[in-house]
Amino acid sequence: MTLLITIYAAVIATVIWYRRKDDSMKLGILCFMYWGAALMWLVDAFFEYFELGAEYFTPSGQDMLNDTFLGLAAVALGLIVWVVRLLVTDPTGSVRRALKKEG
């Protein structure tokens, strides 16, 4: 489930990146981060499959729930890293403008 959720996140991020009007949102970082994690979990899944065989595709309910939770948490963490980097680098100067504003 972690792998599947990360792949979905990577595909969605890539589609949004492809449809972008400009590079101000720095979506490339998000795409590379999710694709990197998805590829790494893919290798992990292969090794687990070779170890467990067909059993790999029939996980227990508790394992699936835990993996789903982990996948969603990983996607959320990726989004946090991206948004913090966006605010710190401030490519459009939006944060700077907000800080300059009085009141």
Binding site: T2, T6, G28, I29, F32, M33, Y34, W35, G36, A37, A38, L39, M40, W41, L70, A73, A74, L77, G78, V81
Partner: peptide, 13 residues
């Protein structure tokens, strides 16, 4: 970016 990003999320796991 792929290596650091992927490794970071994997470390989180």
């Amino acid at each position: 970016r792929m290596l650091w990003g992927g490794a970071f999320l994997l470390a989180f796991e």
